[in-house]
Nucleic acid binder design. Structure first.
Lengths: 188, 188
DNA sequence: ACCGGACATTGACATAGATCAAAAAACGCT
DNA sequence: AGCGTTTTTTGATCTATGTCAATGTCCGGT
């Protein structure tokens, strides 16, 4: 499990073996069933995840009780409820699993210890933040410039595995469209 | 001009005098008139700005020809078209000035030189990215959960100076609502 | 293998907010 | 200061997408 993790890390940054060992030692394995809540709304997020198998998401619930999916992570991937993780304040978004999932988990403390001690980890985290920012930016562009249909087609084109892997309900909330509308979009 | 800049920097990170000197030396002053385009759509963004007086924004134009304002920076503030700056690819968003503006400008090369050479600059940039991410996140939440009126009221509550300082046209495009709708919202 | 609850589909209807248009007000250039 | 351009306001429509409801389908637990 840690082997794939190391390969994944090296894809981002050319960590040396010593660094990889130090990093891997901070990440503890964890298995979770589908529909498990890793972080509840209102909790402070003090974990950062590597997904080695399966699928998790960040999402939130509106005042009207509607679920909105912000981000979906399928293996191999990393992430967390970043806003709360950064600020160490209660999270508006929750994290749950969309499939049975194998994780590697690092605590906030260890994450920031690495950040303080290892230059390359800073570089790694910087890259993650840059990617996260760019992703959000694209999402905003989509919300603001595209119709429901165009947003669906964009996901179909750019991340088709999400269309295959997610239930319509989750996919709809990811695209920000009602289930009914998504159903109609798909049948054309 | 650089004095206020140093105070601004120290608000984020406790740079020492030597570091502040090194940083300030990289930033060149520039004056721009209102409605000047600092970065055109399609150009690669290789500048990062400190706004010492005035107001600039990042924005983009949709296929239908509508202008959408992503982010507004009023003095004292920093920023750029981050996605293009990060990737050094052509920018979808442009940058223009909303008022006569005094800037301090650092090039991409110098920015990344600082990033490579000065640990505290890494920390600074990390903080900027974290803030930028969190801002985008909030923006998405607003777009997805709030009505036009609620988005207007949120801006009125959280950044009232924008309501005062921006034209209705710009403000409308920032809130993601048509000018006409904003006009009606205001008159209630 | 069966049952119950969640999910998906389809239809009818409602509505926020866009669009179009035209008048009124404000702004900035000479 | 005055005129033309740009903004703002107001009114009348239009439309994409949400909501509600009813039926059909799937899936997981016993």
């Amino acid at each position: 499990m840690h082997d794939n993790f190391k390969i994944f890390l090296k894809y981002f940054i050319d960590f040396n073996e010593e660094e990889l060992g130090k990093i891997a030692a901070c990440f503890k394995p964890r298995s979770v069933k589908k529909n498990d809540v890793l972080l509840a709304q209102g909790e402070v997020c003090n974990k950062f995840y590597y997904i080695s198998r399966g699928c998790i998401r960040t999402a939130f619930i509106t005042k009207e009780g509607h679920e909105k999916t912000r981000y979906v992570m399928c293996e191999p991937s990393i992430g967390t409820a970043l806003t709360s993780f950064i600020s160490q304040k209660p999270s508006f978004e929750f994290i749950d699993t969309l499939e049975d999932t194998e994780l590697l988990v690092i605590s906030y403390e260890d994450f920031y210890k690495l950040n303080a001690e290892m230059i390359n980890w800073k570089v790694f985290y910087q890259r993650i933040l840059e990617m996260a920012y760019s992703f959000q930016n694209k999402k905003i562009e989509g919300l603001v410039t595209l119709s429901a249909k165009q947003r669906y087609e964009l996901v179909l084109k750019e991340t088709p595995f999400l269309v295959q892997r997610l239930s319509n309900k989750i996919l709809a909330s990811y695209i920000d469209v009602s289930q009914e509308t998504l159903s109609r979009l798909k049948s054309r």
